[in-house]
Amino acid sequence: MKKIKFIDVGFKDHDDVILKDISMEISFGYIYTIIGPSGAGKSTFIKLINRLIDPTEGKILIDEKNIKDYDIIKLRRRIGMVFQQPYLFEGTVEDNIKYGPMIRGQRDTNVDYYLSMVGLDKSYRTRKVDDLSGGEAQRISIARSLANEPTVLLLDEPTSALDPASTQVIEDLVIELKNKLNLTIIWITHNMEQAKRVGDFTIFINNGRLIEYGNTKAFFSNPKNDLTRLFINGKLTKEGIE
């Protein structure tokens, strides 16, 4: 997998236009952060990539092949997803990490390896998920996605419910994983500073439309679009321009 291409992609929920006319390319091996006001369509955008939903207009290509032509189950294993609230299955950390491989018939998952990938030692293996802190739970949910050996990781505000220390741990971890495993990361964040810290590229979505995207440094230092400038300066909210 080398590239994801959006061609005139739109998504409607009944009569509500959630996304419209999205055309862009995502190159593999980088961290893309997605920013935008609440309700802008950011979560919908990333759910299109692992086909939790399908576009109602346009198409998405991975390596020039329509994602609808890939086996959907295999596609979702290649494109992992971590949510804002890490929903961990009842049982132990090991049960969670083994889940993805288990449902595809693999029994010998190296749980300790995936724990080490998220900076946790093997004593966590037998821990009950109820005993984990928010930061630990989020790390386990990342490890659980990694056990599917994805090439792309979609992160839907993974640190928004965490304290600053845990946020820092997750940021460092994701950057390390990207470098170590050559992962492509698509990361939704509400935190502008976080986007600057972790993103190689930044995508700005407002009101269902792709306003601007590009190299993070240039994006924040010299935005091309007025709406981007307003948003960066905290003057554009869900309700409109302040």
Partner: peptide
């Protein structure tokens, strides 16, 4: 949310 977590992990 729980169901989508399963689906995102490759569950049918």
């Amino acid at each position: 949310h729980e169901i989508e977590t399963y689906l995102a992990l490759g569950a049918n």
